[in-house]
C-alpha cells in the first residue's frame, strides 16, 4: 500500500484469483441463489414431515447418503476448477477431497438455509430438523442446523463463500499429504485472496478470525458424521454395503 514494490501487481493477481474461484464456485454450486429464492416458500407439510419420520431408519440414511453424494460431485468439480488443484499429485487430490468435501457441503449449506424458519433445502423442499428424525442422529442434525444458522449470520457474499470453501478444501494440515508444501502454498494464496475480498467488500475486521474459528466446528461435525456412520454400519452392514452410493463409501470409508 505504500507504493514501494509491486502492490498493484499483487492486487491484480489477488483480484484474478478471486474471480477464478468465484467463477468455479458459481459453476458448481448445485443451485443458484435465485433458484433457491424461488423455492423458499416451499416447506414440507405436516403429513410430508410425518412420512419422512415414519421411514425405516436405513431408508432415511440411504436417502441422505444419496443427497450427500450428489452434492459431493459438485464439490469435486469445484476442486478441479481451483487453480493449482489438478497440479497436485493424485494422492493429495484424493486426501483433500476425502477430508474436505463434506466440510465444503456444510459451508455451502448456508446458501440453502432459511434462518427464520430453521429449514434447509432437502429433497425438493425446505425441511426442518424434525424431517431427519428417522436417522436417529438428532444431536448431529441439531449441530448441523446450528452451524448453518451461524454461517448465515455472517451474511457471506458468493465470492466470500467461494474463497472460504476453497480455503477449507485446501487445508494443508490434513493427514497423509505427500506434498504438504504445495498444498500450503495454495492455501496461503487462497487465504490472501479471501483477506483481499473481505477488505474490498469492507467487511468487519474480525470476520476472517470468525471464519477461521468455523474450521474447527466443521471438523467436529465431520468426525461426528463418521461416528454416526460407524454406529449405523455396525447395525446395518449389508444396507451400507449394497445400497449406499459407491462414492459415499469411498469417501467415508464405509
Amino acid at each position: 500500500s505504500n507504493g514501494d514494490t509491486s502492490p498493484t501487481v499483487s492486487m491484480a493477481e489477488l483480484d484474478h484469483q478471486v474471480q477464478l474461484i468465484s467463477k468455479s464456485h458459481l459453476e458448481t454450486c448445485q443451485y443458484l441463489r435465485e433458484e433457491l429464492q424461488q423455492m423458499s416458500w416451499q416447506n414440507f407439510l405436516q403429513d410430508e414431515v410425518e412420512s419422512y419420520q415414519s421411514k425405516p431408519r436405513e431408508v432415511m440414511w440411504q436417502l441422505c447418503a444419496v443427497k450427500i453424494t450428489e452434492a459431493i460431485q459438485y464439490v469435486v468439480e469445484f476442486a478441479k476448477r481451483i487453480d493449482g488443484f489438478m497440479d497436485l499429485c493424485q494422492n493429495d487430490q484424493i486426501v483433500l477431497l476425502k477430508a474436505g468435501s463434506l466440510e465444503v457441503i456444510f459451508v455451502r449449506m448456508c446458501r440453502m438455509f432459511d434462518s427464520q424458519n430453521n429449514t434447509v433445502f432437502f429433497d425438493g423442499k425446505f425441511a426442518g430438523p424434525d424431517v431427519f428424525r428417522a436417522l436417529g442422529c438428532d444431536d448431529l442434525i441439531s449441530s448441523v442446523f446450528d452451524f448453518a444458522k451461524s454461517m448465515c449470520s455472517l451474511h457471506l457474499s458468493e465470492d466470500e463463500l467461494a474463497l472460504f470453501s476453497a480455503f477449507v478444501l485446501l487445508s494443508a494440515d490434513r493427514s497423509w499429504l505427500q506434498e504438504k508444501l504445495q498444498v500450503e502454498k495454495l492455501q496461503q494464496k487462497t487465504q490472501l485472496a479471501l483477506q483481499h475480498v473481505l477488505q474490498k467488500n469492507q467487511r468487519e475486521d474480525g470476520l476472517l478470525h470468525k471464519l477461521r474459528c468455523k474450521v474447527s466446528a466443521l471438523r467436529s461435525l465431520c468426525s461426528r458424521h463418521t461416528e454416526k456412520l460407524s454406529a449405523f454400519r455396525a447395525v446395518y452392514p449389508d444396507i451400507v454395503g449394497t445400497h449406499f452410493p459407491p462414492l459415499y463409501k469411498e469417501l467415508f470409508g464405509a
Binding site: 469435486v76 468439480e77 493424485q90 459407491p246 469411498e250
Partner: peptide
C-alpha cells in the same frame, strides 16, 4: 487407486457423467 476408483474417475473426466 482401486480403493478410490470413482473419485479417480471423477478427477480425470473433464465433465463427470459417471454412473454412481
Amino acid at each position: 487407486k482401486e480403493k478410490h476408483k470413482i473419485l479417480h474417475q471423477l478427477l480425470q473426466n473433464s465433465t463427470s457423467p459417471v454412473d454412481l
